[in-house]
């Protein structure tokens, strides 16, 4: 594991893995995402923050194909994927973790991991790969437990392992620390930091600024469906406008 605490490495390369231009999503009269231009270089861990209702989750869901944009284009590895189906995006390496816990509730930990992994790993290496993932999230001794017996944090980690099971190049995490204790949040940060060694680009929607500070290269701030500011963590926490949109809520951490 490499320590990234408080550092700001910046992008490893300049090549954009994912980019969006003019991306817009309207639901009836509400414009959730409004003309967003976005660029994510390969290998970066990027945090997406912003007040509630800023359009962060919708933006992620547009990237995964869960929602279809009203307007605009999305490029992934230089290809236009705006209208490709979610499963095709998944197969090309975009993996998504919903904000809402979405493990398979009737199954065991191991069965949960098997579903994403078996699509990408051959039969004889499948068990081995599942073992690795179990170890990554420290659930090896709970492998045959029903997921309902796990704690909330453990289920979240299991789900992160599941999203890793599809061997992603781009990992989209929607509030992975929601509802976690401080210890659990720290462990999650460690987990995400480990991922970058695996050459995975990560985009995280997150509220917890300490978490953001701990793992992030760059931060993008969304507000009212638009990109409000972009920069390093230090630039963002000292940004006057960002402070304002959080309506007095401290962005500097408690």
């Amino acid at each position: 594991m490499r320590s990234k605490q408080g550092t700001n490495d910046g992008p490893k390369t300049n090549e954009a893995l994912l980019s969006a231009s003019g991306l817009t999503k309207r639901f009836g009269g509400l414009t959730a995402v409004n003309d967003v231009d976005f660029r994510l270089p390969k290998g970066q861990i990027r945090c997406l923050i912003g007040p509630n209702g800023a359009g962060k989750s919708t933006f992620l869901k547009l990237l995964t194909g869960f929602h279809t944009p009203t307007d605009g284009t999305i490029y992934y590895k230089g290809e236009d994927i705006t209208s490709s189906h979610p499963h095709i995006r998944a197969k090309s390496g975009i993996s998504f973790k919903f904000q809402k816990l979405s493990t398979y509730q009737d199954l065991t930990v191991e069965q949960n991991l098997r579903i994403p992994t078996q699509l990408y790993t051959d039969g004889d290496q499948l068990d081995e790969h599942i073992d690795e993932l179990l170890e990554l999230v420290e659930l090896t001794d709970k492998r045959s437990m029903p997921v309902t017996n796990l704690s909330h944090g453990e289920q979240q980690w299991l789900e992160i392992a599941m999203t890793m099971g599809v061997e992603p190049e781009l990992l989209l995490l929607d509030e992975p620390t929601a509802g976690m204790t401080i210890d659990e949040t720290e462990k999650t940060a460690g987990l995400v930091r480990d991922l970058i060694d695996e050459d995975v680009t990560v985009l995280i929607v997150e509220h917890d600024i300490n978490f953001v500070r701990g793992i992030s290269d760059m931060v993008t701030v969304m507000h009212n469906g638009q990109i409000f500011a972009e920069g390093s963590v230090e630039e963002i926490v000292t940004h006057e406008g960002v402070k304002k949109i959080y309506l007095g809520k401290s962005v500097e951490g408690d």
Binding site: P86, H87, A90, F98, Q105, I115, V166
Partner: peptide, 14 residues
Amino acid sequence: IAIREDERRTQMFG
């Protein structure tokens, strides 16, 4: 079983 349990999730795995 994955389809039965959660279609949308399963789709997101590919």
